[in-house]
Design a protein around this nucleic acid. Sequence first.
RNA 1: CGAGGUGUGGCUCAGUUUGGUAGAGCACUACGUUCGGGACGUAGGGGCCGCAGGUUCAAAUCCUGUCACCUCGACCA
Length: 479
Amino acid sequence: MLNDSSKKVKDITSMNEDFARWYTDVVKKAELVDYSIVRGCMVIRPYGYAIWENIQKELDRRFKELGHENVMMPMFIPESLLQKEKDHVEGFAPEVAWVTMGGNEKLQERLCVRPTSETLFCDHYKNVIESYRDLPKLYNQWCSVVRWEKTTRPFLRSLEFLWQEGHTMHETAEEALKETETMLEVYADFFENCLAIPVVRGRKTDKEKFAGAEATYTIEAMMHDGKALQSGTSHYFGDGFAKAFDITFTGRDNKPHFPHQTSWGMSTRVIGAIIMTHGDDNGLVLPPRIAPTQVIIVPVATHKEGVIEKAEELKARLSKDFRVKLDASNNSPGWKYAEYEMKGVPLRLEIGPRDIENNQCVLALRADGSKKIVSLDNLEAEVENALNEIHDILYNKALENRKEKTYSCNNLEEIVKTANEKNGFIKALWCGELACEEELKEKAGITSRCIPFGEEMEDGVCVCCGKKAKNLVYWGKAY
RNA sequence: CGAGGUGUGGCUCAGUUUGGUAGAGCACUACGUUCGGGACGUAGGGGCCGCAGGUUCAAAUCCUGUCACCUCGACCA
């Protein structure tokens, strides 16, 4: 096996030098987005959108397998509707965009451009839910939403972004809670098995939970620089919205009941997670299962007889099972190597006169820069294996990074020192009081990421106030 | 919202101090030669110097205003 992963792509700032700059360089150079004429909004270019389409395809399939149906709600919410649930409107009001004019006429009631659609779904559910026989309602919509953020970054935080939002109604609290957990696990599984990004599953503290929710579950991923990215959330609402919107159904006991509700969402932010988890100094590194192009075929010495033909033949063969592209342009092989590395294509197939003579080709893995020579006889199997290997390499690298940057702290002094010196997850016990969360934010600059599921908590005291601890919490700096 | 910075071909920038015919590299187009880690030659195309006023014989350059974007902070699912 050959290895020349040290080669550098020009024009990308090194990660260690300036991570934020590196991120912007990658996003631009890999042609994922263009800045738009509207402040804080982005043009998602074909290559970036193709990644989103693959993400959609994978998630949508999983949703539908669990019985969810896609719908489309309006993009406008009348002010009176938004205001029906108190916590909800308080959480979102500071960052909504308002439509006040229709043509030349001032509107009687201003309309907000949806920042999320709980209120619209509730208003609709009120009309279509009458009996327990109408439940559960398992709806999802793919759309864009608008949140008037002050600071924006491509994919991570923009004024308008694409996402999906699932909204479900259930007969019982248990059923709704189960749905909340199920969908969190769908997200977690998608991250780990499709995106090769390990996540911590857990529950948000009251301070960090969704406006109007009883409980918010989250998956938290760690980026290469040690910062956390909240990557998908699943909320349990109980019957709070149902009461506010007066949604009732006739139960099996022939009496009126309030249904129990959930919502869950994942956005184009996951593309930011992919970039910052797997990317390196040569640019983007895409996990094979969502890469728009999984295999790039680079013919060498295209002027020599038979090379292009052979490359075309391999493309036709592989296209049956994989997403394959052939670059037969006049650019030099070296240029092409660098180009597709920058764009994160997982696997490069080199084919030249020497290979053709020996009935072989070269496979180069973007994930670790390794190269291997394989026979053309069982190429399909070789490619399949290589793509799976790449997935595992990426997942394990990300997991290693997370392990390396996860710390444990037992007292205030320790946690402040760790947070000041390092980026990463800090595991520490917490008493459950808001005051301690706020103190840690102020003194250490960290927020609670989640109370993890499935991790044993030993008896101990709150890292901040020293009183008896209630929960183990992952803390960190977040995007 | 606070502090700092930047606006000149598609991109990165020089030119502004000291006003005097708008430049470079990359990218792009055509043709030819090349091809196992960002090839080369020849010939081309492309700019109301962010916008609006002002000073001047003359403004990318000086003055006033304004807009946009970037970085950091504050805010923030």
